[in-house]
């Protein structure tokens, strides 16, 4: 196994997660993830380790996703291929030991959360993905977003508020969460 292959295997799930949560469309994730790793491969000799590797990797993934979203907004038509692809490719996650009924409810909850996330502006979504899903520090998020830590703080605050408003508009989400917590605990 080559060193680069090892690097890809270590980070592929994280990159898939970041891209899927940011773009919100599973059909595009594979291509965007490949694009990310190709750019990483080509730029690696120029990476000077002034930030952590993961931070650098996420900033590349974020830029590629931003470009893709911009392109999509310019041409919002969906091709027949895309429709077929999106119905064929369903997101793949690590399955827990839960029973089928619980797992279905979990999926329902996760889809609803993703739906709320997808309604937010790009930069809010990216800040939330980096903080809440990838667990980056303010400083690392600042590197990925290309802004100051002060901006990260205020953006994160507004993003959380916007997300909370989306979630509270869907009361059933909270009820589902409570039900699952009761079962789990």
């Amino acid at each position: 196994m080559s060193a680069f292959e090892e690097l890809v295997r270590r980070y592929e799930n994280k990159v898939f997660t970041v891209i899927y949560r940011f773009v919100g469309n599973w059909a595009d994730v594979n291509d965007l993830a490949q694009e990310t790793f190709i750019r990483v491969y080509q730029s690696l000799p120029n990476f000077r380790q002034e930030s952590g590797f993961a931070t650098w990797l996420y900033s590349i993934a974020a830029n590629i996703c931003r470009d893709e979203l911009r392109k999509k907004r310019r041409r919002p038509k969906i091709s027949l291929d895309e429709i077929t692809a999106s119905s064929d490719l369903l997101p793949s996650f690590e399955a827990g030991p839960d029973c089928l009924e619980n797992r279905l409810e979990q999926c329902e909850l996760q889809d609803a959360v993703q739906e709320c996330l997808s309604t937010l502006p790009d930069e809010y979504r990216l800040a939330l993905v980096m903080r809440e899903i990838q667990g980056l520090s303010y400083r690392e998020i600042a590197v990925v977003l290309g802004c100051s830590t002060g901006t990260v703080k205020s953006r994160l605050s507004r993003a959380r508020l916007a997300f909370k408003q989306e979630v509270t508009a869907k009361r059933e989400l909270f009820q589902l969460l409570l039900r699952l917590e009761d079962k789990g605990g």
């Binding site: 996650f93 690590e94 996330l117 899903i133 969460l177």
Partner: peptide, 27 residues
């Protein structure tokens, strides 16, 4: 409480899995 619950929903999202053939396609 609501803000905390909303954040909890995000933190509870699972990690996505890359398809097994990802490296083959990428290479």
């Amino acid at each position: 409480d609501e803000l905390l619950a909303a954040v909890k929903l995000l933190r509870g999202l699972p990690e996505a899995s890359a398809p097994p053939a990802f490296w083959t396609q990428l290479s």
